[in-house]
């Protein structure tokens, strides 16, 4: 799949260069605090950490016909944690997307389909692997200030399986082979000065990795287990089937015509089988620039 994706980009790029279109580049810098980085289910194992994330994106946007755009591009991402260095990683991705606007003007609804493939390389190789995503989204501005939208996404994560140690012979070690389906919706209000206030909720059904020291309840709901040298000494990471509901509030302020600053909070509640559950709260500050 990764080779096909790279080949598509390689052969499409010159063709798109010739078609009427434009290059669009963006840069996003985020500082985020996650109060439960291991996705631990008990207070004894959870801890928070601060991470800095830098992402650059370059896309070729081609108007196939009025109101229909094809976006082909790549992204480069780096994330560094203050303490949990094993989770620091680099990501390189390729994206292809199609956007269709139904009608003319700012109030016309738009539907977009995006496929992306990302390679993730961690400082600690345990989590190295691929993340593929397909996303179908709809956005509709109902008046100048109000905008609503929703999405459905499917994610496939495939771990390389390097440095995966057997902890319990009854379980496999493919903790980072995970599939997820996500449904989300948002409502956004734009003030006359350009500030945006957005509330959003998303529901995820699939698998995640949850880390803890051995002996907890996670083993009862685990699908795969391996030693987790990235999170900390003595930690074990479990693949768990969870249903997650997350709700977020974001404020986004324009700093210049092409730069904005966002501040957001998100609370996520995840439920596995047998009453096993965990919570996460995320706080993020982001600067986005479009070149």
């Amino acid at each position: 799949m990764r080779k096909q994706a790279l080949l598509i980009v390689f052969f499409l790029a010159p063709a798109l260069q010739a078609a009427p279109g434009a290059w669009e580049a963006g840069l996003a810098a985020t500082v985020a605090y996650d109060d439960n980085l291991p996705r631990a289910v008990d207070a004894a194992n959870d801890f928070g950490d601060l991470a800095t994330d830098l992402e650059a994106q370059l896309e070729r946007v081609t108007a196939l016909q009025p109101g229909r755009w094809l976006r082909v591009g790549g992204s480069l991402q780096g994330k560094a944690h203050r303490d949990t260095r094993g989770l620091d990683h680099l990501g390189i991705g390729a994206q292809i997307g199609l956007t269709q606007k139904f009608g003319l003007g700012a109030l016309a609804p738009r539907v977009s389909l995006q496929l992306e493939s990302n390679r993730l390389q961690f400082r600690n190789v345990l989590r190295d692997g691929w993340l593929h995503r397909a996303r179908l989204g709809i956005d509709r501005r109902t008046s100048l200030p109000w905008q609503f939208g929703g999405h459905v996404a499917r994610e496939w994560r495939r771990g390389d399986g390097r440095r995966a140690d057997v902890v319990n012979p009854a379980f496999g070690t493919a903790v980072f082979d995970q599939n997820n389906v996500e449904l989300g919706a948002y409502a956004q209000y734009e003030f006359s000065g350009g500030a945006r206030l957005r509330t959003s909720c998303r529901y995820r059904d699939g698998q995640t990795d949850s880390s803890a020291r051995p002996g907890g309840v996670l083993r009862n709901v685990a699908q795969a287990i391996t030693r987790d040298s990235a999170i900390g000494q003595g930690y074990v990471v479990y693949r768990v089937a969870v249903r997650t509901l997350g709700c977020a509030a974001d404020v986004d302020l324009p700093l210049t015509d092409d730069t904005s600053m966002g501040l957001g909070v998100e609370r996520l509640e995840s439920n596995a089988r047998a009453g096993v559950r965990y919570e996460r709260n995320l706080l993020r500050l982001q600067i986005t620039h479009r070149f």
Binding site: A28, G194, P254, L255, G262, L282, Q286, R290
Partner: peptide
């Protein structure tokens, strides 16, 4: 009336792997 126009500045590219 108030200056009602759609802003030009981009929205964030928030992601959480």
């Amino acid at each position: 009336g108030r200056d009602r126009r759609i802003r030009r500045a981009p929205s964030g590219l928030a992601r959480d792997y």
